[in-house]
Amino acid sequence: MKKVDKDVNDGQLSRTPPAYLGRQAKVVWRRLVPFLEENTPVKRIDSGLVEQYASQYEIYRNAYKHIQENGEVQAIYKTLQDQTGKKIGRDFVGYKRNPMTQIYDSAVKNLTKLGAELGLSPKSRSDLLNLNLDDHKDERSISDRMKEFLGG
């Protein structure tokens, strides 16, 4: 009998990253899963978030490497030609932003958002801990709390 997806691996995240992730994303997965299991209430259902975090980290690293190699901006030149079409020089026109800076910026924002959802910042870990403590304070049954929440 095949297990329901949520019950595979006893409902825990796999320590082995998905095969289709890139090299850097796999490294992040292998480091992240043990940390999450130790410090947050993460389950197998959260594997999509972990996968997104790992892949965004790889995009962030690749974009940063490209920016390091090519700079944040790139010079723009206009080629000057004579009446026969022969190139006789070039004029500096200005700079344009390296498109990788936008990819980098987007990846950083996504990492911050996903990291908060996974409890990877001090504030989000504190919030998760407080939620967990609050859950244990209320001894009423879930159905009693739901009735109260729904106004019943």
Rank of each mutant, 00 (worst) to 15 (best):
W29V: 03
V73D: 13
R145F: 02
K6T: 10
A116Y: 11
G151Q: 07
D82K: 06
Q24I: 02
V33H: 04
L129W: 09
L80I: 15
H136P: 00
Q52A: 13
S47E: 13
A75Y: 05
L128E: 11
A75E: 15
P122Q: 04
I88C: 05
T40R: 08
R97E: 13
K123I: 11
L49A: 08
L114T: 11
T84W: 03
M1F: 03
K2Q: 09
D91K: 15
L111W: 06
F92N: 06
S121L: 01
P41N: 12
L21N: 06
D91V: 11
V42C: 11
K6W: 02
N70W: 00
E148T: 11
S14T: 08
L118H: 02
M146V: 15
P17H: 06
K3F: 04
S124I: 12
L111S: 11
D127R: 12
V73M: 10
P17E: 01
Q81D: 02
F35S: 00
P18N: 01
I45W: 00
T101Q: 09
R145Q: 07
T16Y: 12
Y77K: 09
K87H: 05
P99R: 08
I142Y: 05
Q24S: 01
G152A: 03
N98L: 04
P41V: 10
F92S: 05
G48K: 09
D46V: 08
L13C: 06
E117D: 14
V27I: 15
H66W: 05
N98C: 04
K123R: 12
R30S: 15
N132A: 14
D46S: 12
K3Y: 07
F149T: 04
R140F: 01
K3A: 03
S143T: 09
T79M: 00
P122S: 01
Y20G: 13
E38A: 15
